[in-house]
């Protein structure tokens, strides 16, 4: 076992797959010699050559198109979109094209593509760098959307994503890149896509979160413990498809749930989680399912991120509301 940051775990996963499968190609803006703007691809071009790890011109739409075309030639592309706020430029290549390839060609062509992209607030980035746009991706049939919150999950999920024969959007929260280290096996391992992880067991209320909000939930849970409230924290890890079994089993046990996301209330995937719970477990609920989210404005200007982004205090407040319903 090694102690790794999440970014190191991500690099390690790509290195593993580049070594294992010669069809894996890593490309994007500044991912080659520069090693990526966050050093996610550090050293990979040197180790595997310019035919395997390469820079592209600055155009997201064509990065998506390049990935689709390379997949048609039997490659397993791992393109990077430098910040997920730039998704809008490549929306057609992702949602309009690669997500539909298998279906539109009646299973004759596929898009085994993993789109990696950083997102997430708390690091005072300029405009359209931190926006949480996973909700847009989760609404597109044909995609899977993975959001790890720990170094361990990041490595196992990224290896699974790259090996998946359908397109996976792999979103990396910038605040989690280097904020802590965790135990990561040096050998390869996979984590099944579509499987949540219970990060903290509890019996009084279920907190369902993903990305940086997993850590906010864990912090909230340890404060709630002091007040005698035992919260279970589910890290979704994959936001599309959801791990319904894990969510419902937890709610049936605790009878209360709060869904926590960094995205605005009208965005993200919390509404879907709440809808699934009320359809499948309403008779187990002692209180409505409440949501912790950002307000429905455009993403915060950097100087007021702290006030805008949801945090553990918002979570504690909502837990109090469901406990006292």
């Amino acid at each position: 076992m090694a102690q790794m940051t999440m970014i190191q775990a991500i690099t390690d996963a790509m290195r593993n797959e580049l070594k294992k499968d010669e069809n894996v190609l890593v490309f994007g803006e500044d991912v080659g010699q520069n090693g990526g703007v966050f050093r996610a691809t550090e050293g990979l071009q040197k180790e595997f050559g310019e035919d395997r790890v390469f820079d592209t011109p600055l155009a997201e739409s064509a990065i998506g198109g390049l990935a689709i075309g390379l997949a048609l030639e039997g490659y397993r592309p791992v393109p990077e979109i430098q910040f997920f706020g730039f998704l809008y430029e490549v929306m057609d290549s992702i949602s309009g094209q690669m997500a539909r390839m298998r279906y539109r060609t009646g299973n004759t062509f596929t898009s085994p593509i993993t789109v990696r992209s950083p997102f997430g607030g708390g690091v005072q980035t300029p405009e359209l760098h931190a926006d949480s746009l996973e909700g847009l991706m989760a609404q597109q049939p044909g995609l899977k959307v993975v959001i790890p919150s720990t170094p361990y999950d990041a490595k196992g999920l990224l290896i699974s994503a790259i090996r998946d024969n359908d397109p996976v959007i792999f979103l990396e929260h910038m605040k989690l890149y280097r904020s802590f280290r965790g135990e990561v096996p040096e050998e390869e391992y996979t984590i099944e896509i579509g499987k949540a992880d219970i990060k903290r067991e509890g019996k009084d209320v279920t907190l369902i979160a993903y990305g940086a909000m997993v850590h906010a939930c864990l912090k909230a849970a340890s404060e709630l413990e002091k007040d005698g409230i035992d919260a279970e924290v589910i890290d979704l890890r994959t936001v599309s498809p959801l791990d319904i079994d894990t969510i419902i089993a937890s709610v049936e046990k605790t009878n209360r749930a709060v869904v926590v996301q960094e995205a605005q209330r009208q965005a993200g995937i919390a509404a879907t989680v709440a809808a699934e719970i009320q359809e499948r477990a309403i008779l187990h609920l002692e209180a409505p399912v409440l949501r912790v989210t950002a307000p429905d404005t455009v993403y915060s200007f950097a100087a007021v991120e702290d006030a805008w982004l949801p945090d553990h205090k918002d979570i504690i407040e909502k837990v109090a509301a469901v406990m006292n319903f």
């Binding site: 035919d51 739409s61 064509a62 998506g64 198109g65 390049l66 990935a67 689709i68 075309g69 390379l70 997949a71 048609l72 030639e73 039997g74 490659y75 057609d92 290549s93 309009g96 094209q97 539109r104 060609t105």
Partner: peptide
Amino acid sequence: SPQIIIGAQYVQAAGVALGMKL
């Protein structure tokens, strides 16, 4: 099969061609 989104076939062709070159 025929592409309905005008222009999408162009960026994809660049990818197919790069794949052939590699």
